[in-house]
């Protein structure tokens, strides 16, 4: 299944104001892998994702999806394979009803209206919001918006899912639901987040970005537990790995119980 592979080689990108946001990033993702990308604000995570999707084009380096390089020419094909959920669902849901929004992508790939409907309904069903299909996106709650934005990407049936801070701004219940949803996807996943507990639960591998460069890349359990590394990159240990506030012991909450006093 080599066409689900994603490879990034020596990527460099500077914004027009010459600010170097991505500075020589290389990594590759295997089929079905779930990778967390973490780093402080302004580390360059969103920029990296925009580069992967071809919204920004790198000044140096290359991106390969399967065996196809991301260039202006291959963009339509690349974007059919990779779907990106934006950090702000308001930027992504630009149509006036959820249905129309989810149908926007399939229609642009010139599917018949029947097929479009089938895809839209499957996608909405997958994220559990079929009942919202005729609602206006701007009248939805934060969690519903996020779900709609994911459905809009799923309807394109991508192999690789890319998400920018999917849990930002969600209340705990919605966040939990979102995580369950993401866990149910078998896609190759790239997720950026400050929500280290989510990364801990969802991703087996983590890449730490600092100042546009990769500071670390390895198994999530090792990286998130590295206190010195986390601190140097402007991050903290996830709660799951911090000292228990009640008894001070350093262990999984589900693995230890307090002796009741």
């Amino acid at each position: 299944m080599s066409h689900h592979k994603l490879e990034v080689r020596e990527l460099h990108f500077a914004y027009p104001d010459r600010h170097k946001a991505v500075n020589g990033i290389s990594f590759s993702a295997r089929h079905g892998e779930s990778i967390g990308i973490i780093g402080a604000n302004g580390a360059g995570k969103s920029t990296l994702l925009l580069l992967l999707m071809g919204i920004l084009l790198p000044q140096k380096g290359m991106i390969l999806v399967g065996d196809v390089e991301v260039t202006k020419k291959t963009l339509p094909m690349i974007r059919e394979r990779m779907g990106m959920v934006f950090q702000n669902p308001d930027d992504q849901l630009f149509m006036t009803t959820v249905y129309e929004d989810v149908a926007f992508g399939p229609r642009n790939y010139k599917l018949s209206e029947k097929e479009v409907e089938a895809r839209v309904m499957t996608a909405l069903d997958h994220v559990g919001i079929t009942h919202l299909k005729d609602r206006a996106p701007f009248r939805l709650s934060g969690g519903e918006k996020r779900a709609a934005a994911i459905a809009a990407v799923l309807s394109m049936q991508p192999d690789i899912l890319i998400m920018d801070e999917p849990s930002a701004g969600l209340d705990p219940k919605s966040r939990r639901r979102m995580m369950g949803l993401l866990q149910s996807f078998e896609h190759t996943k790239l997720i950026t987040s400050h929500d280290l507990d989510m990364i801990y639960d969802l991703c087996e591998r983590t890449i730490v970005v600092k100042g546009g460069e990769i500071a670390a890349d390895g198994p999530t359990v090792e990286i998130l537990a590295d206190e010195a590394l986390m601190d140097a990159c402007g991050l903290e240990l996830p709660f799951a790995l911090q000292n228990c506030p009640v008894c001070g012991s350093k262990a999984m909450p589900q693995q230890h119980q307090h002796s009741k006093k």
Partner: peptide, 10 residues
Amino acid sequence: SVYGAMCLRG
């Protein structure tokens, strides 16, 4: 961003 989101979906 909106334009980017539109492009991503073809």
